[in-house]
Amino acid sequence: MDVEQLKKVLQERLTQSRYEHVLRVAEKAKSMAVRYDISVMKAEQAALFHDIAKCMSKTDLRDILEREQEDPRLLDFHHELWHGPVGAVIAQKDFNVADPDIVHAIRYHTTGRAEMSDLEKLIYVADMIEPGRDFPGVETLRELANENLHAAMGACIYQSVKYLVNKKVSVYPDSIDCYNAYID
């Protein structure tokens, strides 16, 4: 897929601030891909697609999850998690993205999962540390991402789970499995 064409589609589908976030994630993903010898093309593609469903209505997200028979547990959790799996479906069905590693990177960029590929880790981390993010500890995560992708992923999933636990909200099982994989 032509990157410039995809950017035009994203600009139409997303708010301006979300579109700018996606561009920052793509730039971060590309630079990390070079550092960690991961395909820059795959990293850019996954990063550009990662939030393609982010601005869809809750009803539309639910309809796609149900129609595509995605994990029904998703519907028991906050709808903020839904855009990853729906984005993966959109990438596959509407844009013919066939590479399972890219599809998984899109699908799991919010929850993580056990046994993530390096591309999946890269997109998860890039999304969390892109330059527009500002939360306590982000600078430490950025430094770690420059040193060791696996360690950065562990620190990022720890940050995510800790955030959710502190808010006293449910944590999706894939995130717990991911967290457990890094603790072990």
Rank of each mutant, 00 (worst) to 15 (best):
D51W: 12
L23H: 03
D37C: 00
R73H: 06
S17W: 04
D63P: 03
L65D: 04
H50R: 05
E66I: 09
K58D: 11
L74C: 05
E12L: 03
A53E: 02
D60I: 06
K8D: 12
K58E: 13
A47K: 04
Q45L: 15
T15K: 15
L74T: 00
S17L: 04
D51A: 15
A33D: 07
V22A: 14
K54G: 03
S57D: 10
I64Y: 06
L23Q: 09
M32P: 01
A43L: 12
E12S: 15
A29N: 12
E70F: 06
Y36Q: 12
E12D: 15
S31P: 00
M32I: 00
Q69R: 09
R13F: 10
D71G: 04
E12I: 04
E70N: 03
A53Q: 06
R73I: 03
R35K: 08
T59I: 15
H21C: 12
E70W: 08
V34N: 12
M41N: 15
F49S: 02
L23E: 05
A47C: 10
L48S: 08
D37T: 04
F49A: 10
A53Y: 06
D37H: 14
E27R: 10
E68S: 08
I38G: 01
K8M: 13
K58Y: 03
A46M: 08
M56A: 05
V40R: 15
S31D: 08
E70K: 08
R62I: 11
V25N: 09
L14H: 05
P72S: 10
V40D: 05
K30Y: 01
L14F: 02
I38D: 03
H50P: 08
V34S: 07
A43N: 04
Y36E: 13
S39E: 02
S17F: 02
R62W: 03
Q11W: 00
D63L: 06
F49R: 08
A26H: 02
L61Y: 00
E20Y: 12
Q16R: 15
H50E: 09
I64L: 14
M41G: 10
Q16N: 13
E44K: 09
L74P: 02
R24C: 11
L48I: 03
A26G: 07
Q11M: 06
L74A: 00
D63R: 08
K8G: 10
R62M: 07
V22D: 14
L48C: 04
S57G: 13
K42M: 08
E20W: 14
K30A: 12
D37R: 08
K54S: 06
K8I: 12
L61K: 09
A33F: 13
V9T: 06
C55H: 03
A46P: 01
D63A: 13
E70R: 10
K28C: 05
K8V: 14
R18I: 00
V40A: 09
V34Q: 14
I38P: 00
S39N: 06
E70Q: 15
K54Y: 14
S39P: 05
T59Y: 07
Q11I: 00
V40S: 05
R13S: 07
Y36P: 11
T15V: 04
E44G: 01
S39L: 05
A46L: 06
A53N: 09
C55E: 15
V9Y: 02
I52P: 02
K30T: 02
M41E: 13
M41W: 12
Y36C: 07
F49L: 14
D63Q: 14
L74Y: 14
C55V: 00
I52L: 10
P72F: 04
E20Q: 15
A47Y: 09
Y19M: 09
V9R: 02
D63V: 06
R13N: 13
